[in-house]
Design a protein around this nucleic acid. Structure first.
Length: 821
DNA sequence: TAAATATGCTTTTTT
DNA sequence: AGCATATTTA
């Protein structure tokens, strides 16, 4: 497979290059070291398009970094010609570091970043082409929500059942599809008043952003696409520049991101032509001379459709499943060998994911051996469950596993509370990834709003936010007066503050406004000197300190008797420290740069300082990470799969992928735990084992305490019962092999067999549903189908169904997620 | 205008 | 239960 391709690169590259550093006859000999054949292929293949289907733990990061290194080493590309897109800033940092390890300083100058950061860079350069300035700011979801809240109120949209939240998610969805208010209006049912109001709000929202010289998260991508399409010349400069584009986690790209990549990988000067024609023909030509600056950039995408877990925010799995159609002639490399987990863990993962029907079959395997069994535990309550996790962590720690090599996953952030409580009590060092974010705290947002007011005075939201923080006696009435005055005078809200005396408000308030205006002006002079002179690196830190002090923000907190305000002061100190750190890392960094960095950084990004502590995070955050020991908690119906997913098409399948992602993070030890009761919204509800547990072969799980051992009314059944816990000879699972039951087979022996009475009644119990030949049913995953025959009796009746979309299946009538239609 | 109290809503996941 | 917002009251 690789025989033909290896000479291709070696041949082109053996010439005397006088390469800096370690010269070798074959510059990439060491890059290929330790790689299996498909991995090598993925590193050395050259062509217009390459899809690397990388199963979990198959070494894709390694492959990707070596591929980049190989391009650089062989001088096929300058660093500046490489654009690598990752999902998080942290992943970008890691990739940059690993490439640097391979090629040294030459790694400088590459663009390795997230979609959002890359787009910001482009937009900053080109903003003036379409009505923005270089100093635009970025609205995070909180800002967006606040703006929409005002607009919804102004348009009385709530009367039509619109909430800021619903409008926000709808706008986001549309933007991810590259739609705007006008294009949506054309296709929407405008006789529906709710739709009309929505379009109005959407349009108004967009105009507000434009006026504020700001982009929201989705705009960063969408507007860049718009920019490229509207200004082919601009697009061409980037097409000429980026000759090699690599995209990681391609399964989680949405349509806008797809379109962006599509724009960048067109041939230079090709805007008049349809995309397919040009790209498809070229592959049969002899390899075009590298450096020819009219052909399309080469595109490498890496992904795994089994790990697509962001459909809810517009990720379109088809981007990867239809890659070969979009890029005809694309090379596909499949990485299935897993270097991370034991076989038991992989078998469990394979069995679970095998229940998703519309996937290409892919089986992870390893040669490291079976390893330990998965450990299962059912607690009476979430506290009980947390105690188990804590105890096990301690036990593992005593066997010399470092805390930093352990992680606890959960479906929803709220589940972290119970764990935290127990961890604190048990003195286990832990760190929560994500969760309540530093930059979302009110005092931090206030401080940031002060900075925005300086950096981007057009951003009215920011100025309004700080208007009365700290309390200056400026209320709604005054705020409206300022806005009216600004509109009358055709000046910005910010500039209106300079004319306090003209507002027709009381002298006290006038003084307060004038004072705020003076402080803002003074800080602006520090951070953005009107002389045009470059501000010193410390400008942001100094300016922020000045703002916080002279505005009275700090002293108001100091004088407060609310004990929480002390913590708020500490947080502000922390923020000032962040600006200093920023100055150290970016000597030329401006306020704008600082704001950008903060806007695009997520808390999951600073995983580094997790050393020495157990990591707690959601299953989503866990993607891309790995640990020696992994605890997947709350494996219950309505949690994983989450109840909200039940209604969404494809929801349960996405939840299964999420569970799969969690399982495949584990290297050596995997724990799964659940609770029989869980407090939610202040009331205690009975929880049922997740259906996904049934999908794991029973002999892979060692139940320390199975759901059958726990009395659902509370408490644990007699010790005697607990004592005959399977493990010795009796178990009854010896003979049942891990039989594949993904498609047509009814589960033969599953993890829940040992407590058959506990098969979640609430989860699924169709009772005595009567089905006969000819009936039509609807299945949660498979869609609609027609019953051909029914066999078996009682609880074991099996329906033979021919589904419209997925063909024939056999289903256990009692428990299948079906309904008669 | 600001503090105190009542209500109601949340909990899916995030760049 | 806990938090954020709405409403009432000083």
């Amino acid at each position: 497979m690789t025989d033909a391709s290896i000479p291709l690169i070696v041949g082109g590259d053996i010439g005397p290059q006088g390469d800096a550093g370690s010269d070798r006859a074959r510059p990439d000999a060491d890059l290929l070291e330790g790689l299996n054949p498909p991995q090598r292929e993925a590193v050395i293949y050259r062509g217009p398009a390459l899809l690397i289907v990388a199963g979990a733990g198959s070494g894709k990061t390694s492959v990707l970094t070596r591929r980049i290194a190989s391009l650089l080493r062989s001088r096929e590309a300058w660093p500046s010609q490489i654009l690598a897109i990752t999902f998080t800033n942290k992943a970008a940092g890691e990739m940059r570091e690993r490439v640097a390890q391979l090629v040294g300083d030459r790694a400088q100058g590459m663009w390795i970043s997230t979609f959002h950061s890359a787009c910001v860079r482009i937009l900053r350069r080109e903003a003036e082409a379409f009505g923005f300035t270089k100093s635009f700011t970025i609205y995070d979801s909180g800002d967006t929500r606040a703006l929409l809240k005002r607009l919804v109120k102004e348009h009385e949209a709530d009367a039509f059942g619109l909430t800021p939240g619903s409008v926000m998610s709808k706008i986001s969805k549309l933007k991810n599809e590259l739609a705007d208010a006008e294009s949506y209006a054309r296709s929407a049912n405008m006789s529906d008043p709710a739709e009309r109001v929505f379009v109005e709000v959407f349009g108004e929202y967009q105009r507000a952003l434009q006026r504020a010289n700001a982009f929201d998260f989705d705009d960063l991508i969408g507007q860049t696409v718009f920019l490229f399409r509207a200004f082919p010349k601009i697009a061409d400069t980037y097409r000429r520049r980026f000759r090699h584009i690599l995209v990681d986690e391609y399964q989680d790209t949405n349509h806008a991101q797809y379109a962006l990549i599509n724009e960048l990988t067109r041939p230079v000067g090709s805007d008049a032509q349809p995309f397919d024609g040009g790209g498809g023909m070229m592959i049969f030509e002899a390899t075009p001379e590298p450096g020819s600056d009219t052909d399309a950039a080469s595109l490498t995408v890496v992904g795994d459709s089994d790990q697509s877990i962001y459909a809810f925010r517009g990720a379109d799995i088809r981007n990867i499943t239809e890659f070969e159609r979009d890029y005809p002639g694309a090379k596909v490399v499949l990485l299935e060998q897993n270097y991370r987990s034991t076989q038991n863990i992989l078998t469990a993962a394979n069995s679970v994911i095998g229940n998703n029907f519309d996937r290409k079959d892919k089986k992870l395997w390893t040669d490291v051996g079976a390893g330990e069994k998965i450990v299962g535990f059912t607690g009476y309550s979430q506290h009980d469950e947390a105690q188990f996790v804590a105890d096990e962590i301690e036990a593992l720690h005593r066997t010399d596993i470092d805390y930093s090599q352990m992680a606890v996953f959960y479906r929803t952030n709220s589940q972290s509370r119970a764990l935290e409580e127990i961890f604190i009590r048990s003195a286990i060092p832990y760190k929560i990834m994500g969760g309540t974010k530093f930059y979302e705290r009110a005092e931090i947002k206030d401080a940031m709003a002060y900075l925005v007011a300086i950096a981007n005075p057009a951003d009215e939201m920011a100025v309004r936010r700080i208007l009365n923080k700290p309390r200056r006696g400026i209320g709604d009435v005054t705020e409206t007066a300022i806005a009216r005055y600004a509109a009358d005078q055709q000046i910005t809200f910010r500039d209106a503050l300079a004319n306090a005396s003209a507002l027709g408000v009381g002298p006290k308030i006038q003084a307060a406004i004038a004072q705020l205006d003076a402080v803002l002006a003074e800080a602006a002079e520090i951070m953005l000197p009107s002389s045009g002179e470059l501000a010193p690196p410390t400008a942001v830190a100094e300016g922020l300190t000045l703002l916080l002090q002279k505005s009275g923000y700090m002293s108001a907190l100091r004088q407060s008797k609310d004990p929480q305000d002390e913590a708020r002061l500490e947080n502000l100190d922390e923020l000032v420290a962040v600006t200093r750190e920023f100055a150290r890392n970016n000597p030329d960094g401006t306020v704008i740069d600082f704001l950008t960095e903060v806007a695009l950084v997520s808390d999951a990004d600073d995983l580094e300082d997790a050393s020495g502590s157990v990591s707690l995070m959601t299953l989503h955050t866990a993607k891309g990470l790995e640990y020696d020991a992994v605890f997947v908690t709350g494996v219950e119906e309505d949690l994983i799969p989450h109840r909200i997913s039940a209604g969404e098409p494809g929801g349960p399948q996405e939840e299964r992928r999420l569970f799969y992602v969690g399982i495949t993070r584990a290297r050596k030890r995997l724990y799964m735990s659940l609770a029989m009761t869980r407090a939610q919204f202040g009331e205690v509800t009975v929880a049922m084992p997740s259906r996904f547990l049934q999908e794991i072969p029973a002999d892979l799980i060692d139940w320390r305490q199975s759901p059958g051992d726990v009395n659902s009314r509370g408490g644990i059944q007699s010790r005697a019962l607990n004592a005959r816990r399977p493990g010795g000879s009796g178990g009854g699972f010896g003979g049942a092999p891990a039989r594949r039951f993904g498609d047509d087979l009814v589960p033969k022996s599953t993890a829940l067999d040992r407590f058959p009475n506990r098969i979640p009644a609430r989860v699924r119990d169709n009772g005595d549903m009567i089905l006969g030949p000819g009936d039509r049913i609807r299945h949660e995953d498979f869609g609609e189908g027609r019953v051909d025959a029914v066999t078996g009796e009682g609880a074991k009746r099996v329906a033979h169904v021919r589904f419209d979309k997925v063909g024939a299946k056999k289903l256990l009538i009692k428990i299948a997620p079906i309904e008669k239609i």
